Simulated assay, not measured.
Amino acid sequence: MSMVLANGLSMHVEQLAPPEPASGARSTAPTAVLIHGLALDTLASWYLTLSHPLAAAGFDVVMYDLRGHGRTQRLPEGYALDDFVDDLAALLATLDITGPVHLFGNSFGGTIAFGYAARHPERVATIATIEAMPPTAVWLRLVPRWIGNAAAYLQREHALAGSNPGRGERASRWAKTIGEVLAATTLARDVPASRLPAEERIAAIRCPVLCIFGGESAVDEATTDIRRLLPRARIVTVPGQRHSVLVDQPNNIRDIILPWLREAGGQHCDDHQLARIDH
């Protein structure tokens, strides 16, 4: 575990390096930045799913806890989308990452990725999101519902806890996490009040984009703006899955993302390693 100071914030960061080349020669590996979602989430959702396959595929992997989450400093206020995008920009500067990066975002993490790319298109090589929307008026309208749904989901988990002690322990841990974040910060007020980037800036994103959704989530609502603003984006639906598809189906997500990276960002990827991990 490492703590770095970025944007005036003490941030928890984890990094994974790719394997050393067989020749022993040093090579410049592309950087993959993994951004998690709101309230219930931390960098652990990436660490336990896609981080090691990406490192094995030849990427320098960077994961971090968002402000107010995990081990990163929890300020009482300052949780608008711009704050999270500023944090990402500052973290890359602090880590001296100057080349184009591959951004991976789960849920709100994907919205941060789109927000960063709208502001710094030249700094992004590819974007791969899971259950995420670009920051548009439709997204902003849906945010309060999602925050409410998180609370309702936790209540349902508690109701089922009696018949499944393991599930009850997990629900209690999640309830404690989201309760602390929402009670101690202005996140629930700030995110829905976020300033949106101009739509033309989102439409100007030219890097390859992959958007993955669970078939049982709100796919139609989520994909409307993606199809309108980013018509070249690839949209993949995983049948029978909901919002937690990254955690529930990590191997499936890996098998979607790694071949796409070879195709969309092959000039940045280690083809030999990608082929080995694909199988």
Rank of each mutant, 00 (worst) to 15 (best):
Y79S: 03
Y79M: 09
A80H: 10
L81H: 12
D82T: 13
D83S: 12
D86M: 02
D86Y: 00
D86F: 00
D87F: 02
D87G: 04
A89I: 00
A90L: 06
A90K: 04
L95V: 02
D96P: 01
T98W: 12
G99T: 10
P100L: 10
V101F: 08
F108K: 02
G109A: 14
I112T: 14
I112R: 09
A113R: 00
A113E: 00
A113L: 00
A118N: 06
H120C: 10
H120W: 08
P121S: 12
T126P: 01
I127C: 11
T129P: 00
I130K: 07
I130D: 05
E131V: 06
A132Y: 05
A132T: 11
P134K: 00
T136I: 14
A137V: 07
V138C: 06
V138I: 15
L140C: 05
R141M: 10
R141F: 04
L142K: 13
P144Q: 08
W146I: 13
I147Q: 14
G148Y: 02
A150K: 07
A151I: 15
A151W: 07
A151C: 09
A152I: 02
Q155V: 10
Q155S: 11
Q155I: 12
R156W: 11
E157W: 04
E157L: 15
H158E: 15
A159L: 11
A159C: 03
L160N: 13
A161C: 07
S163N: 13
N164K: 04
N164L: 06
P165K: 03
G166T: 04
E169T: 05
R170L: 11
R170T: 06
S172Y: 06
R173Q: 12
A175R: 12
A175P: 01
A175W: 10
A175G: 15
A175M: 14
K176I: 09
K176D: 15
T177D: 08
I178P: 07
L182F: 12
L182W: 08
T186W: 05
A188T: 09
R189A: 15
P192T: 13
A193H: 13
A193N: 15
S194C: 11
S194M: 10
L196N: 09
I202G: 03
I202A: 01
A203K: 03
A203C: 11
A204P: 07
A204M: 10
C207G: 07
P208T: 01
V209S: 04
V209T: 13
L210E: 06
C211E: 05
C211Q: 08
I212R: 05
